[in-house]
Design a protein around this nucleic acid. Sequence first.
DNA 1: CCGTGATCATTC
DNA 2: GAATGATCACGG
Length: 227
Amino acid sequence: MPGFGPPESEAELLRRADALAGEALRVVAARVGMPVPPNLRRHKGWVGALVERALGADAGSRATPDFQRLAIELKTIPVDGRGRPVESTFVCTIPLSEIGDVEWEASWVRRKLARVLWIPVEGDPRIAPGDRRLGTPLLWSPNDEELEALRFDWEELSGLIGRGGLERITGHLGRVLQVRPKARNAAVRRRGRDADGAVIDAPPRGFYLRARFTQSILARHFAIPQR
DNA sequence: CCGTGATCATTC
DNA sequence: GAATGATCACGG
């Protein structure tokens, strides 16, 4: 039965997650005492917050893995009728003025993605939030190939930002990882640096995993048609 | 105010 | 249709 304190072990976390598989979100919401929104337009993070609560995640909105003691990151991932991701996956915000000095191994992308509990959830917008069902959880760590792809993109993107190329960054860059805006709205600004090292105000950005990458992760573990 | 939880909605 | 850029709520 999920929904108490943080899990004491990986095995306990998995037991809790397995117990949720197949459940409709309305059932889980009732169990943890969360209201069910009629749609997600004004409640975009509702599914993630619900599952966090149901599993006993303890990190709040801190920049650290959701299960601090276990060093495991929780990600709900919306999937279509075939089990394929319908959205990209946010990883973390980018410290724009410092990213150039960070080593890959110490980066938040590397650390957060070292161990992720993926929980598929029906993501078809035509299904009401309360009717959407949770899928089989997957506790994942990147294999050598995935790790190398992530490192390559991270080096390119963070290197570009570190060299003052923030203005040249678009969502088109990166094979598996991309950089996109991450803010309340387009007017929000954060301190960054341009190519000459001058301080500039730029929109906050975050690293995201492309859906094709998370699709390959799910496909590696579940029997999902690639096309 | 900022980072995390993401999905929306317009553009390509 | 897919993908990018924009956006919304909440906790601390």
